[in-house]
Computed example of a mutant assay.
Amino acid sequence: MYSLTPDSEIERYIEEDVPYGDLTTTLLGIGDEPGEITFTTRDRTVLCCTEEAGRVLAKCGAEVLSMLPSGTIAAPGTEILRASGPAAALHAGWKVAMNLLEYASGISTRTATIVERARAANPGINVVTTRKSFPGTKKIAMKAIMAGGAFPHRLGLSESILVFSQHTVFLGGLDPFLDKLSDLKKLAPEQKILVEADSAVEALRIAAAGADVVQVDKMPVAELAALVSEIRSRFPGVAVSAAGGINGENAAAYAATGIDIIVLSSVYFGKPADISTSILPVKSN
């Protein structure tokens, strides 16, 4: 995967950690000593942001010697990134690169687990993620979920149409909105119209009105399976997505209901990947 993070953001990551230089390395007088830094996985990890981590080290004055690309499934003990340079450059980029690798790879590894379990139960299912990533981290979060095999559900409000009850309340409720659904489709003929239902009864009414996708939130698996079966029978052109509380433990059960799309946020929150770092001096010839 390519690194689409602009130089300005790479520089901002570095500036957050090294705003006025590295006091420890300077006082020890080791800044000019040649060395190498190596990042290695401790657990099975789906890698993400190796490219950005390498760019951090390069911006600090190091040279990347080897790197595995984002999306690689790395076994425990795998060397994923190595760079050489003066100790000052290696120490300046160390923690910034480590944080990028651990947080992003944590997201991509959780995502890959859910995708694997969901597709084992339902090979045709799509796994997508919401816009609930921590503010300021969207580029990294989106790269991480794609490295894990998922895709964005919505990048923001500008590129998709998803109607909630918080919208229809301004129109007088669900029924007045459904009466105008055909008009909405004419206004945006290139867009799919997604509508969230608060119950199975609402979901069937939304499907009958011609929505492209009916989305349900926190619906129990047994109820969802029955709903999917009825929508498939009565409205075969309507897709069903399920959101709310879906994670690695229950993704397979939700996928097995026959839904088309799993929508989740859980991958953004959890333990970072465990990656070790070694910085060692290199004897000059």
Rank of each mutant, 00 (worst) to 15 (best):
Y2D: 06
Y2W: 10
S3A: 13
S8G: 01
E11N: 12
R12V: 00
R12L: 13
E15N: 12
V18D: 11
G21S: 11
D22F: 09
T25V: 15
T26N: 12
T26I: 12
G35R: 08
E36Q: 14
T38M: 12
T38N: 06
T41K: 03
T45G: 08
L47Y: 08
C49I: 00
G54V: 07
R55P: 01
V56H: 02
A58R: 15
A62M: 11
P69S: 13
S70V: 04
G71S: 12
T72W: 10
A74F: 09
T78Q: 09
E79Q: 15
I80D: 08
L81I: 02
R82G: 01
A88L: 13
A89F: 13
H91A: 05
H91W: 15
H91Y: 15
G93C: 10
L100F: 04
L101Y: 03
Y103H: 14
A104V: 00
A104N: 14
G106A: 07
I125K: 09
I125P: 04
N126S: 13
V127K: 03
V127S: 05
T129L: 09
T129E: 02
R131D: 00
K139W: 01
A141E: 02
M142R: 07
K143L: 03
A147Y: 04
G149R: 05
P152I: 07
R154W: 06
R154Q: 10
G156S: 14
S160M: 12
L171W: 14
L181D: 07
K186P: 00
I193V: 15
A197H: 01
A200N: 15
V201Q: 13
E202P: 08
G210M: 10
D217N: 10
K218T: 11
P220G: 06
V221H: 01
L224I: 08
L224R: 05
L224N: 06
A226C: 00
L227Y: 06
L227A: 05
L227I: 11
I231Q: 03
R232W: 07
G237D: 15
V238H: 01
A239S: 11
A243N: 09
A243H: 04
G245S: 02
A253N: 04
Y254K: 06
A256V: 04
D260G: 06
D260E: 05
D260R: 02
S266M: 00
Y268C: 02
K271N: 09
P272C: 09
A273R: 05
T277V: 15
I279A: 08
P281G: 07
V282G: 01
K283C: 03
N285H: 13
